[in-house]
Design a protein around this nucleic acid. Sequence first.
DNA 1: AGCGCTTCTGCAAGCGCTTGCAACAACGTA
DNA 2: TACGTTGTTGCAAGCGCTTGCAGAAGCGCT
Lengths: 328, 328
Amino acid sequence: MASLDDVAREAGVSASTVSRALSRPSMVAESTLVRVRAAVERLGFRANPAARALTTGRSGFFAVLVPDLDNPFYSTTATAAQDQAGRSGRRVLIAVTGGDPDREAEALGELEGQVDGFAVQSPVSSAAALKEVHARKPVVAINRRVPGLTSFTVDTPGGLGQVYDRLVELGHRDVAYLAGPPSSWMDRHRRAELVEHAARSGLRVRVHGPVRPAFAEGAAAAREIADSGCTAVLVYNSLLLLGVMFEFGRLGVRVPEDISVAAADDIALVDLPGPPITAVRTPADELGRAAVLALTTLVDGEGGDRPRGRRLPTTVRITDSLAPPRTA
Amino acid sequence: MASLDDVAREAGVSASTVSRALSRPSMVAESTLVRVRAAVERLGFRANPAARALTTGRSGFFAVLVPDLDNPFYSTTATAAQDQAGRSGRRVLIAVTGGDPDREAEALGELEGQVDGFAVQSPVSSAAALKEVHARKPVVAINRRVPGLTSFTVDTPGGLGQVYDRLVELGHRDVAYLAGPPSSWMDRHRRAELVEHAARSGLRVRVHGPVRPAFAEGAAAAREIADSGCTAVLVYNSLLLLGVMFEFGRLGVRVPEDISVAAADDIALVDLPGPPITAVRTPADELGRAAVLALTTLVDGEGGDRPRGRRLPTTVRITDSLAPPRTA
DNA sequence: AGCGCTTCTGCAAGCGCTTGCAACAACGTA
DNA sequence: TACGTTGTTGCAAGCGCTTGCAGAAGCGCT
């Protein structure tokens, strides 16, 4: 591997000049620039990232912590984060934590020295722990509000409210909610919202689960839901909903004639043929992008004002997957 | 951040001793070890990875290149790879290439200096390009055989053969195959196998697709398949199959009464309730593990004999999702 | 007592890059 | 002509760690 010195020799300049030619071209005369570039080309030089990291204290990496990759919500944010990071020449280190607080803490600790910042998705760590890390390396929270940290969330509760309203309007009284993982801040949030709404509107809500938000789990829960006598079901996420509907299909439960369905995100529903399904449209990719963008300004920025987090608005797509209850 | 020197001072020894205490404890006296450890603890010391990488030439990272993360096959191998890497204290850098040769090449180039090796999943790059990288950093291929590289594949064709045989045995003559992405080495392989088998056994095979291996795409292809008059359908992967079956459910097409179904992997079928589906059981996680293990020996090993790749055997689960054709 | 040996520790160089500082040239300007 | 500018370059230190080498003990042996 060619080093800076090799390039310097080849171009007939000093190593510092080469370094500057590459990182701050405006400081170098045009003619030298050309020579250096030619030498770089000829030798196929690539800066040694470790050396650069050592001197600058920057690695060019952001870590993205996600509970798992099987959930399209997470893989989507992670992929979007990677894409966004690429725009400032950075790379993303995806760490799968399994939603386990210990592994999350371990990842935070181990990676602290290797990355320029963290985007933590659905963190199970305590806010205090996150803020401690934040004191040294910028941390932004995705999909959970953490006081003191720039946080990006999605206004799913708001969207769900509209779904409840519609259900009430249609005459539903008995609604099932298939809950996501208990460790999920989002799920707790949604349930709270649900309970509150139920109290206000006279809905009776039965919670099923919690379950791992996977297709198979949705399918597994379908029978219980169908048998529970509810007339509508709200599901923690779209992947679960597909599982539920898949099994409904096998059980002969028709949507929406026998039961109305809706999901709290629409990720796995995109491009699905046939009649659309009621869902809260969730901009997962935007979440990943926004988080990385915030990290970028946090790292590159002159310091000072930390970027404001946002709660991304949702839109609800109410469709014929919601219909009046059968008995009505 | 505490440095080695800080620890050395705190423990009353030299920096080199601390370094050795951490990386080669057997070279250090027990009593010193204790003091050093205490000092490390007290100061919360963590070695600076960049500095370590600079001196040793090792970053402790393996890169795993995958086309995308939405495909559970890839996310499973990636997750397993991460897990396996953790056992030797390494981390995994997941790079999503989108199945794009340019992005794959770019990732290989950019990461070459940052990682100790590559596990390349379903690489679209030419074998020559991969081998060129391999000359500098170990590369192992996942799910594609690349001459000159340690490669791990799964014997899906062998498994599919059994499925075909069973279909013939049941009296099927007209079979559909829903193909995966055309860039996939695996899909090409499977199709070749299929054609050959068809010729031998008098099956008539109609290829649908190719499609992106996603649930929605499967659902979108379902009607066309159902209308094609075939009596059985083989699907590129399990995610697609779920999509197909999902839509079958909505279309009123019954499995297996109206049509027999089977998938070329079983990943998304795990834990699915109800009657099991015929599938070639694919050890995706083992693939990820094996690849990282090979990398590990390639890097840590005394050199010499490069680890042999393997073609992981598959088992086929033939179930009642295969039944005699309707008209038979 | 003297010797070689093993065991442990410290010294110092160096990994490849960045960057503050100083040197220098070329160029007005007073 | 002398001097301050501006623009360009090189020198050298240093980032935090690892490691070859050599020195210092401590040991058993003759």
